[in-house]
Design a binder for these strands. Structure first.
Length: 551
DNA sequence: CTAGGGTTAG
C-alpha cells in the first residue's frame, strides 16, 4: 500500500504537457520496492483494450515503468487514437524523469500525428536529442498524410542535409508530396535519387513513383515504371488503372483492368472505385451495373468510398433513382456522398430535390458542407428554377452561417442565379463589386442571361469584356472581323428559338442548335430525351428542357 | 517504430 501512495500521480483531467522538460537532464528516483514491474498485467490490459486500467497500472508502477510498458501503452493509444491517454503516458515519462529512447519518441510522433496533433508531433520531433531515418520518415509522412506537401518536402531536404540516408519508406512517402506545379520536377529529382540508391524496383516505392507521374499527367512514364516492376500487387495495379481513369483515358483504364484481371490481379474496393470512375466517364451503365453486381456478390464490406463512386456512376449514367437508393442505404456518409448526390440532382436541374437534400444534410448535422457542397447546391438552384433560394444560401455564406468561405466559383453561381432571375443589372453590379477579377466564364454566364432576357445594352458591354479577357478567342479573327463577329453576337441575343448560325463561341452555337433540334425532336416524337453536355444534363419532355433554356 | 493506390467539384 505504501508503494502505491508513493508513486501515485493525481492527474488533472486535461493534462498539459510541458514538452521541453522531457529533455532536461534528470535521474530517476531509485525505487525501494521489492515488487518487480508488473509488465505482463499491463500488457494484457492493453491487448484487451482496457486503456484506463492500463493507465492506472502505469501510475502504480511509477518510476518502475520501463521501455516495454511504455511501448505497449503507446501502441494501444495509437490503435485507439486515444490522445488524452497518450498524453498521460507522455506526462508520466516526464514526471518520472524517464528519458525515452529514439524509438519511443518516434512512437510519440506517430501518436500525435494519428490524433491530428501535427504541432505536437513537430515539437516532439524538434526536441529529439538524436534522430534516425525512422523518426525523420515518421515526421515527413505526418506532413504528407495531412496534406502539407511543402513541409514534407522541406523536411526531406533537411534530412538529406543532416546526412541521414533515406530508405524505401522515406521515398514512398515523400513522392506523395511531389504534387502541384513543381511536383514533376521534384518527383524526377527524387526518382534519380531512387535509382542511385537502387530502390526503383521496390513495390511500394514503384507504385508511389508511377502514381506521381500519373498525377503529373505523364501516363507513359507511369506505364514505364509499372512495367519495370518485378512484381505487381493490388496497389500498383490500381494506381496505374486510376492514373488512366483520372486523366480521362477511360477506355484504356478499362482495357488495362480487363487485361490485369486476366493475368490474375486481385481487386479491392479501391480498384472498383477507380474502375467506376472510368465507367461513369463513359456513361457505361450496363458495365457499371456489372461492377455493382460483382461488388455485391463479393461481399466486400460497405466501404463509403466505393458507395460514393457508385452514386456518382449511376448519376452520370442517368439513373438517379439508383443513386438515391444507394445513398439512402448507406450506414455512414461522408461529405463526398452528399456532394455526389447533390451534384447528380443539380446536373439534371432538379432544384427542388437539391434544396430538400441540402436541408436534410443541415438537419442531420452530422457532416459539414464544404465548398463543393455549396457549389452543387447553388448551381442546382440556378439550373432548377430556385433562384431565390440559391441567392439566400449564397448570402448565408457571407454571414458566416455556413462555415464555407466563398470562392470565385460561388460568385459565378450567384451571377448565374441573378441572371437567370432576370436581374441583369443587379448581376452586372454584383460582378463589379466582387472581390475577384471576373473570369470569362462569369461574363459568359451574364451574356447567356442577356440572350435569354433579350437585353442588348448589357449584352453589348459584356461581349466587349469577353473579347478583352479572351484575346486568344478573338485573336483568330482579323480586326474587321471582330466587329463583324460582335454584330453576330448581338444578333444572337434576339435570335429566334430556331437559332441563327452565329460563329462567336463555337460551342455556344452548336449547343443552341443541338438543343433546339433536340427539343424539336422531343415535341414531334413525344418522347423524353436525356442529353449530357460538358456541364449539365438536359432532360427534354414535349419540347421543354429541364435546363429552362439556360446553360 | 516509418511507406504506396481511392470517391464529389474544377
Amino acid at each position: 500500500m505504501l508503494r502505491k501512495f508513493n508513486w501515485f500521480f493525481p492527474y488533472a483531467k486535461h493534462v498539459v504537457v510541458s514538452f521541453s522538460s522531457i529533455n532536461k537532464p534528470c535521474t530517476r528516483q531509485i525505487s525501494l520496492s521489492s515488487f518487480p514491474p508488473n509488465s505482463p498485467y499491463l500488457k494484457s490490459l492493453c491487448y484487451n483494450g482496457h486503456l484506463k486500467e492500463a493507465l492506472l497500472e502505469m501510475a502504480l508502477q511509477g518510476p518502475e515503468m520501463r521501455f516495454e510498458g511504455y511501448d505497449t501503452l503507446l501502441n494501444e493509444c495509437i490503435n485507439q487514437r486515444a490522445i488524452r491517454e497518450g498524453q498521460r503516458v507522455h506526462t508520466h515519462m516526464i514526471k518520472t524523469c524517464y528519458l525515452p529512447p529514439v524509438y519511443l519518441r518516434t512512437r510519440l510522433i506517430v501518436l500525435y500525428c494519428k490524433c491530428e496533433c501535427l504541432g505536437d508531433a513537430r515539437q516532439m520531433f524538434d526536441e529529439m536529442p538524436e534522430r534516425n531515418v525512422v523518426s525523420w520518415t515518421a515526421m515527413i509522412s505526418a506532413y504528407s498524410q495531412r496534406g502539407y506537401a511543402s513541409e514534407a518536402l522541406n523536411l526531406f531536404g533537411q534530412m538529406l542535409r543532416s546526412g541521414t540516408e533515406p530508405n524505401e519508406f522515406t521515398f514512398a512517402t515523400v513522392l506523395t508530396s511531389c504534387i502541384g506545379s513543381n511536383g514533376l520536377k521534384l518527383g524526377r529529382q527524387v526518382h534519380s535519387f531512387i535509382i542511385k540508391t537502387s530502390f526503383e524496383s521496390h513495390i511500394y516505392v514503384g507504385s508511389s513513383l508511377l502514381d506521381m507521374y500519373a498525377k503529373a499527367g505523364r501516363i507513359h512514364e507511369a506505364q514505364g515504371v509499372f512495367e519495370s516492376l518485378p512484381e505487381r500487387d493490388v496497389v500498383s495495379c490500381t494506381a496505374i488503372i486510376s492514373g488512366y481513369a483520372q486523366l480521362g483515358h477511360d477506355e484504356e483504364a478499362l482495357e488495362l483492368f480487363r487485361r490485369l484481371q486476366m493475368e490474375g490481379m486481385s481487386s479491392n474496393y479501391v480498384t472498383y472505385a477507380s474502375v467506376l470512375t472510368a465507367l461513369s466517364g463513359l456513361s457505361a451503365l450496363d458495365h457499371g451495373k456489372q461492377v455493382h453486381n460483382h461488388v455485391l456478390r463479393s461481399e466486400l464490406p460497405s466501404y463509403v468510398v466505393l458507395q460514393n463512386s457508385l452514386i456518382d456512376m449511376y448519376s452520370k449514367c442517368g439513373s438517379l433513382n439508383y443513386s438515391r437508393r444507394i445513398f439512402d442505404s448507406m450506414p455512414e456518409r461522408t461529405v463526398i456522398s452528399w456532394n455526389a448526390m447533390l451534384m447528380g440532382y443539380s446536373k439534371y436541374g432538379m432544384g427542388r430535390e437539391v434544396v430538400e437534400l441540402f436541408e436534410l444534410m443541415r438537419e442531420e448535422n452530422k457532416v459539414k458542407p464544404d465548398s463543393v457542397t455549396i457549389l452543387a447546391v447553388l448551381s442546382g438552384c440556378s439550373h432548377g428554377g430556385m433562384e431565390e433560394k440559391g441567392l439566400e444560401i449564397f448570402f448565408e455564406m457571407g454571414n458566416g452561417k455556413l462555415s464555407v468561405e466563398p470562392v470565385i466559383e460561388h460568385y459565378g453561381c450567384a451571377v448565374d442565379l441573378l441572371g437567370r432571375a432576370g436581374q441583369l443589372e443587379e448581376a452586372f453590379k454584383f460582378i463589379k463589386k466582387m472581390p475577384f477579377e471576373p473570369t470569362a466564364a462569369i461574363w459568359g454566364s451574364l451574356l447567356g442571361a442577356c440572350r435569354v432576357h433579350s437585353n442588348i445594352d448589357i449584352g453589348e458591354f459584356v461581349g466587349r469584356q469577353l473579347l478583352e479577357i479572351e484575346p486568344e478567342n478573338a485573336g483568330n479573327y482579323e480586326d474587321g472581323k471582330i466587329l463583324e463577329t460582335l454584330a453576330l453576337a448581338f444578333g444572337l441575343i434576339n435570335a429566334t428559338p430556331k437559332g441563327v448560325p452565329v460563329r462567336v463561341i463555337k460551342n455556344l452555337r452548336i449547343c443552341v442548335d443541338c438543343h433546339n433540334f433536340a427539343k424539336f425532336v422531343s415535341k414531334v416524337n413525344g418522347r423524353e430525351e436525356c442529353l449530357r453536355d460538358k456541364n449539365q444534363f438536359h432532360r427534354i419532355v414535349g419540347g421543354i428542357c429541364s435546363c429552362g433554356d439556360y446553360w
